[in-house]
């Protein structure tokens, strides 16, 4: 069962003696439902990774970094988890995120999606969905609303969208919330 897009899985392992980009490794690419599950069942669950590690699933040709031309003007819907949620929620939310991506859950706005990242951090893990144009309000909001619904977050929970350009200059603010 062919996917709409080919997706690349990346793994980041923090080693401060090396440059950031040297810690980023392409694991594999998948373009069928069957290959996606073969990949998923062969890698560690996100909750089993050590702190400082990331997984990223991005469309083929887009590197999981702000600097990529397809990310440069974009941003991310960010889900921040509390420390205790690593064992109760992280793996389920990350899998739902992956299924939204490969299943093209955002209808026509799926073309705005670049990928998703899970950051494993001592302070609290994070999951984000990256889109390519932070100024494209209609797409960003549609993706945010559908994503929140797929994660099963309560209507009281608020998730925010941040432009990478703001994050890069540390002037972090929510450009949109749903």
């Amino acid at each position: 069962h062919q996917l709409q897009n080919r997706w690349a899985l990346w793994f980041f392992k923090n080693d401060s003696s090396r440059a950031w980009q040297d810690n980023l490794h392409l694991v594999t690419k998948v373009d069928t439902v069957e290959d996606f599950w073969a990949m998923y069942s062969h890698i560690q669950l996100a909750s089993k990774l050590s702190s400082g590690c990331d997984y990223a699933l991005f469309k083929d040709g887009i590197r999981p970094m702000w600097e990529d031309s397809r990310n440069k003007w974009g941003g991310r819907w960010l889900v921040s988890l509390a420390k205790h949620q690593r064992h109760s929620k992280l793996d389920r939310l990350w899998l739902e995120t992956l299924l939204c991506l490969i299943g093209e859950s955002f209808e026509d706005h799926s073309r705005e999606v670049c990928g998703a990242v899970v950051n494993i951090r001592t302070k609290g893990d994070k999951i984000s969905v990256w889109t390519q144009e932070a100024e494209n309000q209609a797409s960003v909001l549609h993706i945010g609303r559908v994503y929140k619904e797929h994660l099963g977050l309560s209507t009281k929970a608020i998730i925010g969208y941040q432009a990478h350009a703001d994050t890069a200059t540390k002037s972090i603010r929510n450009k949109f919330v749903v």
Partner: peptide
């Protein structure tokens, strides 16, 4: 057409043995 799959469809493949 665009290949869209909902989560239930995708999950059905999770534990399916690979075809050889």
């Amino acid at each position: 057409g665009k290949k869209q799959y909902d989560r239930e469809f995708l999950l059905d493949f999770q534990f399916m043995p690979a075809c050889i």
